[in-house]
Design a protein around this nucleic acid. Structure first.
Length: 645
RNA sequence: GCCGAUGUAGCUCAGUUGGUAGAGCAGCUGAUUUGUAAUCAGCCGGUCGGCGGUUCGAGUCCGUUCAUCGGCUCCA
């Protein structure tokens, strides 16, 4: 007999060779029906795989992340089987489960799959699912595995098998489909009840741009139709938060084909909102010892030859600007650092001057590939809330701390509670890839890790993700559809100080090389505003929102009073407007609600007589009558609370 | 840049097998003077993304190009 320890620490005894499914059955039939896989000593197994020794066992169902992953992975096989039967001779790359569903990369030869083919694939999958195909795991020798796919003529699987070790290779069979796969899988296909093919896209084999592009088909499945419907509904809801849609509806920004792709036009409301963000950050930075600077939008080619950007990116950039002078070339600036380096260089510096923190809302231009452009999150012209800190190696830690404080304060003021912190360090295997001394790198990397710890950041450490010029820390936030975008960034740079020959005179009266820290808490104004819109679904924090209140006179008779209220609010720095259309109050309220204006102030006979306003809050309804002072105080105290450090 | 899809009025969309465009909202004008999510009426508005082709005739078919969307690759 073997001992099976369950998650509640209870121990049950079974004959060797028992499967997780058998154990589930011994608990209840209902549980057995829902088991998708099992975690055996921490490793996810097929529920049917025999267990031959004492183990810790956790049964996995749809409620477990690994359970979902198992079902989606099995669904990928099911989809491949369906596609193979509909498109004979199709060759298969890889077909993993992903965060929401699964995909399979397929070489269809000359054939294409488009949206209109989804239904027949779904139908075929449903047909196979119903037939209760069992997933059978089979150990196979490398030689036999190669032989199988040679006969099938699938060069992708052959390539994958070449990289595997003999003795470690398994096949899974379900119905007519056999796949190279390490598993695990669900017991049989009948658990897959609701099926949706979501989209099709091109994807390079092994992620390599120079290799063949396969057809990637995305899908998702659920054990119940209701769950699929809910998922699709959630997707629809998420699309309503899309910053491109809201940006248009709220008249924040627009694009014009005539102006050019990826070149955002900030409309009055959007520009005002952005300016408030900039003013807010400028104020914070002033307190933190930054100095604002301004540099031009173009720079001589020599600047970028010095910085090294010309050699590396010259060809993929906007083309140089030529002048009447033969051979003279300028570039639109793709970053602000070289300009700031030259500012540092305008005079000699003492160690007593450091750290020097130069900040600029600097607009930069980068020729992103056309397929990369995406609303405000990926554009060709954007404004970085940039700053460069020139300091000694020993000051890195304190400077990092200071920047993190700024970023955390910003995130708090904007209700960003969920973000991902990533620390990117050297690849320990290839230290020669990086510029700067080993000693300095170690100092900086340790400083970053320590600061993250001290600040209580739950940071992910990625080795090998550092730039060649220094380690960095990035802050990422997800958009409405779960796509990750990098916002804030803090990067150490040993390269540019070298290239620009930056120096300071130390206490020893010798010249030393300062370290440069690039940092941008927002990242770029464009991307930040985009993510912010999706985050709050257009309901901006009160201090930031375009119109904080709208005054709704009941009729023309109260227009004068409405103007008086507007004036008084203006005196209290509250942004308000009057809806003086000859519409019914219900209509004005409806329109104000749709415009997501936080406060609606209804004024009529009673309010005019008493000098009050009748307050309605967006999404909440009537709050009752307030004196104008009380209302102004309410708004301002709410704002002050949000902006508390 | 690559794969797939989409492009009709400011916005959201309709437009049967090819017979030179239609709705709602927005806008304008007028009436209405209104109390917590849409008052009524009239009017204006489109070289159907651009260019080329097939056809007696193209929003509808074909080619090409531009832009957008979903991915891939990229992101100093």
């Amino acid at each position: 007999m073997i001992n099976i320890t369950l998650p509640d620490n209870s121990v049950k005894q079974f004959e060797p060779g028992v499967s997780a499914l058998d154990i589930a059955k011994s608990i209840s039939e209902g549980l057995a029906r829902n088991v998708l896989a099992a975690k055996v000593n921490g490793e996810v197994w097929d529920a049917t795989r025999p267990i031959n020794e004492d183990v810790n066992l956790q049964l996995l169902t749809w409620n477990d992340k690994e359970g979902k992953a198992t079902m989606w992975h099995s669904s990928a096989h099911l989809m491949a089987e369906a596609i193979e039967s509909l498109y004979p001779g199709a060759k298969f790359g890889i077909g993993p489960d992903i965060e929401n569903g699964f995909y399979y990369d397929i070489d269809l030869g000359d054939r294409v799959i488009s949206d209109s083919d989804f239904k027949k694939i779904e139908d075929k999958m449903r047909e196979f699912a119903k037939s209760k195909q069992k997933f059978c795991r089979k150990d196979i020798s490398k030689q036999d595995a190669l032989k199988y796919f040679e006969e099938k003529g699938d060069e992708y699987k052959l390539e994958l098998i070449q990289d595997l070790e003999d003795g470690q290779i398994t096949f899974y069979e379900s119905g007519e489909f056999t796949d190279l796969c390490r598993g695990p899988h669900v017991v049989d296909t009948s658990i897959i009840k609701a099926i949706k093919i979501l989209s099709v896209a091109g994807a390079y084999w092994r992620g390599d741009e120079n290799r063949k592009q396969l057809t990637r088909v995305y899908g998702i499945t659920f054990p119940k139709k209701k769950e699929l419907d809910e998922y699709l509904e959630r997707l629809e809801e998420a699309k309503k938060r899309d910053h491109r849609k809201l940006g248009k509806e709220l008249e924040l920004f627009t694009f014009s084909q005539k102006v050019g792709q990826g070149l955002p036009l900030w409309l009055p409301k959007g520009a005002a909102l952005r300016e408030r963000l900039e003013t807010f950050l400028k104020k914070v930075q002033k307190t933190a010892g930054y100095q604002q600077v301004i540099s031009p939008h173009i720079g001589n080619v020599e600047l970028y030859k010095t910085s090294g950007h010309y050699q590396k990116y010259g060809e993929d950039s906007f083309r140089p600007i030529t002048t009447p002078v033969e051979g003279e070339e300028y570039f639109l600036k793709p970053m602000n650092c070289p300009h700031h380096c030259e500012m540092y260089n305008h005079k000699p510096h003492s160690y007593k001057d450091l750290p020097i923190r130069l900040a600029e809302f600097g607009t930069v231009y980068r020729y992103e590939q056309s397929g990369e452009l995406h609303g405000l999150t990926r554009v060709r012209s954007f404004t970085q809330d940039d700053a460069h800190i020139f300091c000694t190696p020993d000051q890195i830690k304190d400077e990092f701390k200071g920047v993190i404080d700024i970023i955390m304060y910003i995130f708090k003021a904007l209700n960003f509670n969920e973000f991902i912190t990533q620390i990117s360090l050297r690849d320990p295997e290839n230290p020669e890839k990086y510029i700067g001394s080993d000693e300095n790198w170690k100092k900086a990397e340790d400083a970053i890790k320590e600061v993250a710890e001290e600040k209580g950041l739950d940071a992910i450490i990625e080795y090998g993700e550092a730039a060649f010029y220094g380690p960095k820390m990035d802050f990422m936030v997800k958009d409405a559809l779960g796509r990750k975008w990098q916002l804030g960034t803090i990067q150490v740079d040993y390269n540019l100080p070298e290239r620009f020959k930056l120096t300071y005179i130390g206490a020893d009266n010798e010249k030393h090389r300062p370290v440069m820290i690039h940092r941008a808490p927002f990242g770029s104004m464009e991307r930040f505003v985009a993510v912010l819109i999706e985050h709050c679904a257009g309901n901006f924090p009160l201090w930031l929102t375009p119109d904080q209140a709208i005054i709704l006179p009941i009729s023309e008779k109260y227009q004068n009073y409405a103007e008086k209220v507007l004036n008084l609010l203006d005196n209290s720095d509250i942004r308000a407007a009057i809806d003086d259309r000859s519409e019914k109050t219900g209509r004005k309220i409806r329109d104000a609600e749709l415009k997501k204006i936080p406060f609606m102030l209804v004024v009529g006979e009673k309010e005019a007589a008493e000098g009050t306003v009748s307050v309605r809050r967006h999404g909440q309804g009537d709050l009752g009558t307030y004196s104008i002072d009380d209302f102004a105080n309410m708004i301002n105290s709410e704002i002050n609370k949000m902006l508390e450090k």
